[in-house]
């Protein structure tokens, strides 16, 4: 028995070791984004690389030993990439574009999809199932395959080079209808009947009865929509060619094309794009898990 205990503890230790090493390897790239972005301009391209930027390792010692000026210089040097980024590029504009488009896409998707899902899940009308299966059927077609015809549609509508060209196709995605319908099917219909007897309108039932009950589903969909909108690259790259309407990922690409070797600048741009997503993920982790398991296989 004792021997068994020891063996299983060694096993557990090994598991932790493997997982920790793997996690470190996985996180090095993100760590390197932030590290490079706050290195002094002259310490970015050196060998051996400095894994702890001097502003982190030397700021406190310098401050303690009374060299306040040197310490301040270090801080200035660390922020140099960011200063350049915000002064010389349109990153703040791209950031606002991304934020505006992602927020609008999220709000729009939540509203449109919850209405459609409510109807598909809880209402009876001729053709309902047919209309639903057409929608779900198109989910099997990967988006990249439709780039050319989608571009032609957007061009016909005359919205190329406007944020609408990015926004409208995102609002048309059907994943959310599918996800919310799954969710709403589990809400008992008696609740809606009760509201109907009390004289609530159909929209009132949707708004006051269904939406509050569907909150966890809405939160999940909202977060997934926000992240995928924020991170989308290929379609915004095609839809918008004017830098005033670039989203962050597209802006970063042009930044890279123009500053191929200024890695401090590039990494500070990458950090600006990554930070909001990391915050969103760490604060709403459980919704990511829920969304993936709801939208994926039914086990």
């Amino acid at each position: 028995m004792l021997k068994n205990m020891k063996a299983s503890q060694v096993g557990l230790g090994l598991i932790y070791l493997v997982l920790i090493i793997w996690a470190v390897i996985s996180l090095i790239p993100l760590y390197w984004v932030f590290t490079t972005s706050i290195q002094q301009p002259e310490e970015v391209q050196i060998m051996p690389p400095r894994f702890i930027p001097s502003v982190i390792s030397q700021y406190l010692p310098l401050k303690m030993s009374g060299q306040t000026e040197r310490a301040q210089e270090l801080v200035n040097g660390a922020l140099e990439s960011y200063r350049l980024l915000f002064q010389k590029t349109r990153i703040s504009r791209w950031f606002l574009n991304s934020l505006m488009i992602s927020l609008t896409a999220t709000a729009g998707i939540l509203f449109l999809d919850s209405m459609a899902a409510f109807s598909f899940a809880k209402k009876q009308f001729p053709g309902r199932d047919f209309l639903f299966w057409i929608m779900v059927g198109t989910m099997t077609i990967p988006g990249q395959v439709l780039l050319v015809p989608l571009f032609m549609v957007v061009r016909e509508l005359g919205v190329v080079n406007t944020p609408w060209a990015i926004l409208l196709p995102q609002l048309s995605m059907v994943f959310g209808v599918f996800l919310l319908r799954q969710f709403m099917l589990t809400v008992p219909s008696e609740l809606m009947e009760a509201a109907r007897i009390d004289g609530a309108s159909e929209f009132g039932i949707y708004w006051r009865v269904m939406l509050p009950l569907a909150k966890p589903g809405l939160a999940t969909l909202g977060i997934l929509t926000f992240t995928s909108s924020w991170n989308s690259f290929l379609w915004p790259l095609i839809a918008v060619q004017k830098s005033e309407w670039f989203t962050l990922p597209v802006g970063l690409k042009t930044l890279q094309d123009q500053n191929l070797v200024n890695y401090g600048l590039l990494m500070s741009g990458a950090a600006v794009a990554a930070i909001p997503m990391i915050i969103v993920f760490l604060s709403f982790q459980q919704y990511f898990v829920k969304g993936l398991t709801l939208g994926g296989v039914k086990g």
Binding site: W22, A23, S26, L27, P29, L30, V33, T227, W230, N231, F233, L248, P249, L252, K253, A270, A273, A274, M277, I278, V280, F281, F288
Partner: peptide
């Protein structure tokens, strides 16, 4: 393990 998936593929 999920964090790198959250950051954009561009980053």
């Amino acid at each position: 393990f999920y964090l790198p998936t959250v950051a954009s593929s561009v980053v």
